[in-house]
Each structure stands twice: as structure tokens, then as C-alpha cells.
Write a protein that binds this DNA or RNA. Sequence first.
DNA 1: ATCGGAAGGA
DNA 2: TCCTTCCGAT
Length: 523
Amino acid sequence: MTFFFFFNLLFGPFQGYHFPEWAYKTESSPGSRQIQLWHFILELLQKEEFRHVIAWQQGEYGEFVIKDPDEVARLWGRRKCKPQMNYDKLSRALRYYYNKRILHKTKGKRFTYKFNFNKLVMPNYPFINIRPNGVVPQSAPPVPTASSRFHFPPLDSHSPTEDAQPSRFSTSSLVPSNPEALGDGGERKPDVPELEDGSSDWRRGVDLMASRNAVGAGGVNHQKRKPDIMLPLFTRPGIYPDPHSPFAVSPLPGRGGVLNVPISPALSLTPTLFSYSPSPGLSPFTGSSCFSFNPEEMKHYLHSQACSVFNYHLSPRTFPRYPLMVPPLQCQMPLEEQPQFPIKLQPPPVGRKNRERLESAEEPAAPQLATPPPRVKVEPAMDKEAEAEEPPAKGKDKSEREEGSGLEEERGPVFARPAAPSWHPAPPAPAQAVFSTEESPDQGESSGEKPCREPAGETGAQEKREDALMPPKLRLKRRWNGDRQADVPEERQNGRVHWNGALGSPHLAAAPKAVAAAAASDT
DNA sequence: ATCGGAAGGA
DNA sequence: TCCTTCCGAT
């Protein structure tokens, strides 16, 4: 009760915002050809069968890795009936999202992008979305850690040097109610340097949460802030419970908890809001998806906040309204009554040009630009886990993974992430995901996908027919081998080499395995 | 590999 | 508006 009261009090003013049209675009019937790229990506991302093609990057909310760019492009091309699609083009489309702030590139990591969930609005989702079992995605550090430092390009300034502030990181999560501090669409520079925009998906997450629950009144966040995207709900089968997935699908369905719904990326940020995620071990959730309050953890949290302030030169103001006011929740609010509405957060970012214009207008000489930022080469560390079923308990060390800076001594233990839920090891779901539909994996990204009328080089329709006649496994196998050849002609396309040349590539090497694995789990 | 301008299409 | 296609630059 109390919590919601506060929450609404804080974020009420979101009501009545005007959202840009595109924000209202939903997935548009799964499988639809008019799907937007980011929808599509999200779609792939949550399907087990594409895990080896594209997957959430553990460790970071919303960050994903395109493990097989060519395949993703191919899938995208198929969906859009653009047989000539390739990663080069796809990535261009992706880059257009930068300015919209739907996505940004994770620097130093190949094929790695990150959703700006702050922009993703999930309609119809209940507010609190901690998983029924209380498990929070490992990728959601309860408190900003060095590893959560992040590379969101400051919209407003020094665009070319986005990583100019590599050492900043998201601690600002706790300033949700301070619109001033928000990079907010990039129209302005934050008043508080430490809260510089580039830092936070945290804040963004909060914003999101806030907007979702724009119910009450009074409060802090008036002025601007429009949501940019309506994130479609993906509740179709095939979603896989990846602990790193911001979708945070509950591994324990049917708990009857308050939130028995898949969590949206947006909501995945819930822990952000609460700023600390109770580990199931320490504070087991009782019965349902309630937020539990553990004094010990809170203590840790506070400690770490202090550390953050100290170690990262953050302003204590950074943590003003920390959800300390969050009382032990008791899940008072029945699911049905939870507020549900679309939210809008920030206005689309100013285009680069404008940005520059503004820049030069107000701050002619930005000295920060003088020296190019140190390139932080982060080792992908991806390939290994490619097929490994990410050991359940592994999430723990994630916080150290990226740079293993000494800054984290106290953070590590304190915020050790909860071990992955026991369900993780052998997700039986995939099989179903793969074969439950009439489609073979690579066309399966959409259940409603219609064949393209001008295959121009694609053997789509026919393939499909033939496929229908053979057992799934065979079908898969055939696809992996067949498609490659079928696509060879595309190779003439500019840019990247296609299947032919890619045969030796790591991604492709993994692909068949993926299929095999999927097939294996089919039993 | 990545970026982003430019032009064009639906 | 949201890409798709091309392409030069980094």
C-alpha cells in the first residue's frame, strides 16, 4: 500500500503525456511483415531457438549479442521479404535506432547492442514484476557496479566521443525523480555531471516504471518525458527463460502470484527501482512475487551506495529518494487492479545534426573532446558461452567480469547475484518452441509470416512445402545445409560475405550445433 | 567492424 | 516514418 502510494505520488504526473506515433506501434501481429526491426530483434531474442543466433548478453540488461550476423540478417530479410538483406544493411537500420535511443552500440564488443529499455514501454503490464520466485535477472545488478558502467551515448554532446566517460557508470538509478538530471532526450546537459546521461539505464528504467504507473498526481517528474516506444508483449510460446533476458519470464509459471506475466524489458528494471535485488536465498519470496525486504540486504545496499558515492565521486544527491521508502511489500494490489497504461517517456532525441547545432551554439569549444577516449576493449567473452548452457550460478561474478577493477571489493560479495534458479539447467521449453509451430526454426521467427511473393532468389515457398513433409529434425538439418547454398547467390551483395565465405566462421560453426541441440531436446 | 550521409521506396 | 541500398570514412 504504502509503496504504491509513494510511487504514484512520485510518478503520477506522467499521465496525459503525448506520445509520438511511433511509440504506439506495436508488434503488429506477430510475424507481420511490417514489423519493425527492433520488434523483430526482441522477438528473436526471446526465442530459445535463436539463442545461438542472437542472445541476451549476460551481465547487462538489454544488451544482446548477435552471434550470427548473417543469419540474423537473413531472418530479417526473410521477414521483410528482402532477400538481399545482409548484416550491413541491417546494421544500418540498427544504427538509425541510435538517434532514437532505442538502441545503442556496446562499444568494444562486436555485434553487441543494447536496448535502451527506458524507451520501451510495456502496456498492460502489471507494475511490479519481480519474478514469482523472486529471482531477478542476473544481469540486473541491484546496484550500479563498475561493470554496469555503461556506454550510453550522451545524446546531447560530444557525440563522437561517447566513451569519453568510460568511467562513469550508472549510479544515477536512484534519481528517477529528478528530471533535471536526466539526459532526457538529450536536449540538455545534466546539471549534475555525475548524473550525466550516458550513465544510466538505471534511471531510464525507473522512468519507465514510473511512466507505467502514471496514476497518482503530484510528484516530481512533470515536464517532458515521453515514452518512445510501445513495447509489444511477447507472450507467445517459445519465449525462453533466459536469466539474462530482461524479459524475465518466470520459470515458475502458475504460481498464481501477483505477477504471473512475463516481465517486460521495461519491468526488468524493476530491480533498478528498488535498487537492490533481494536474493531469493536471503529473502525468499513468500508465495508470490512480492518484493521482500531484508534489513541485512538493505544495509548492504546502503553501504554500497556510500561506496559508490565515494568511489565514483558521485554526488550523494544521487540517492535522494532511494526506495528506502519501499516498505516490505505484501502484494496488496491484486493483479487486476494494477494500473496498466502505456507510458511515454522521452521525446525522441535530437538528431545528430541538431545536436551538433545546439552544441556549437551553446558550447562552442568542448575541451572534453580534445583527447580521444581510451578505447576500452572488452573481450567478447561470448563465444565460450555460446553453447554452454550458462552455468546457473555463474551470474555472480558478472560484476567483475568486464574490467575486474579493484573498485568492487565490497560490491562483489555484497551484491552477489542470486544463483540462477534451479530450473535453468535443462530448459525443456525449447523443443516445444522449435517444433510446436509448423515452422522450421529459421522461418519460425514469426508465426504469422506470409511468404514473400517475389522470392527473387529465395526458395521459400517451395522449401516450406517440402519441409512440411519431413520430420522436424530432418527439416532442420536440411535447412542448415540447404539454405546456405540457396543463399549463396546473395553473396554478390555488397558488404559482407555470405554463407559461403562464412562457413568457417565461428557463428556458423555454432549454428548447426544449435539446431542439433534443439533437435536433441525435442525428445 | 562501425558509423552515418544520401537517396529512394512503400 | 522506417527502413533499404549504397557508400566513403574511420
